[in-house]
């Protein structure tokens, strides 16, 4: 497993950062907080210990475990992220704060748990589309978006997104006019990105709750758009 952390090797699933987010902290974390090394919460240490032992003893097949986990990858759900986006659409002061300091602005909401130290929110505009990738590993703001989709961790997405973002987006049926700039944001364990998509037309007067229903996970990664009002969910 080189620095590119080849996600295809399921034996090494541990080494792929987002499954256990090295920057996240459970409420029982006890580690000192410095930035020279990685941190795992006490709970994460115990889970990793157990999983390593069970794998070594043959009680657990990493591939089978991955399959179970992937079946639920969307089940933490993008609810937190969707709420943040919907609030930004309806509250100009919050939107401004969010774009200035994502982690801080989200922290003020209270109902969202920790989002790591540096969550940067990048805004889509009529002239610019943002998409998020991690070429090094697969860092992912799971507190906002739930467990990462399988394709996000896959080597083809990671390598192609930088070289050919338009082509990757086309694979997701996101076809953008040539004059729209595409900006690709490369996540690290220290800085993750959340895309603030554009508010769909025809949603004037909608409440935050209604708007949040339109915000998809992919629209916050940049590989999709929010749902249109009235479209089947």
């Amino acid at each position: 497993m080189g620095p590119g952390c080849a996600a295809a090797d399921t034996r090494q699933a541990w080494a792929i950062a987002p499954i256990f987010d090295v920057m996240s902290h459970d409420h029982d974390h006890h580690h000192r907080h410095d930035h020279d090394h990685s941190e795992l919460s006490e709970t994460e240490l115990r889970v990793r210990a157990l999983e390593t032992i069970l794998t070594e003893k043959g009680y657990v097949e990493p591939a089978a475990l991955d399959a179970i986990i992937q079946a639920y990858e969307t089940k933490i759900g993008p609810h937190n992220g969707a709420r943040v986006v919907a609030k930004a659409w309806t509250d100009p002061a919050f939107r401004k704060a969010l774009l200035e300091d994502g982690s801080k602005a989200i922290g003020t909401l209270g109902h969202v748990s920790r989002v790591g130290d540096h969550l940067v929110v990048v805004e889509n505009t009529p002239a610019r589309h943002n998409m998020v990738v991690c070429t090094l590993c697969s860092c992912y703001p799971w507190e906002m978006l739930g467990l990462p989709p399988v394709w996000y961790k896959a080597a083809p997405y990671r390598s192609r997104a930088v070289k050919d973002p338009r082509g990757v987006l086309a694979d997701f049926d996101v076809n953008l006019p040539k004059d729209i700039e595409i900006r690709v944001w490369d996540s690290t364990a220290e800085t993750r990105f959340l895309v603030l998509p554009m508010r769909p037309a025809g949603t004037e007067g909608w409440s935050e709750e209604q708007l949040a229903e339109l915000v998809t996970r992919d629209s916050m990664i940049g590989t999709g758009f929010p749902k249109s009002p009235g479209a089947p969910s």
Binding site: S24, E51, L54, L65, I69, Y72, K75, I76, L147
Partner: peptide, 14 residues
């Protein structure tokens, strides 16, 4: 099942 964090999904799967 729903999970609040990735480690919970791991614990469930184990």
């Amino acid at each position: 099942p729903v999970f609040r964090a990735p480690w919970e999904a791991h614990a469930f799967a184990m």
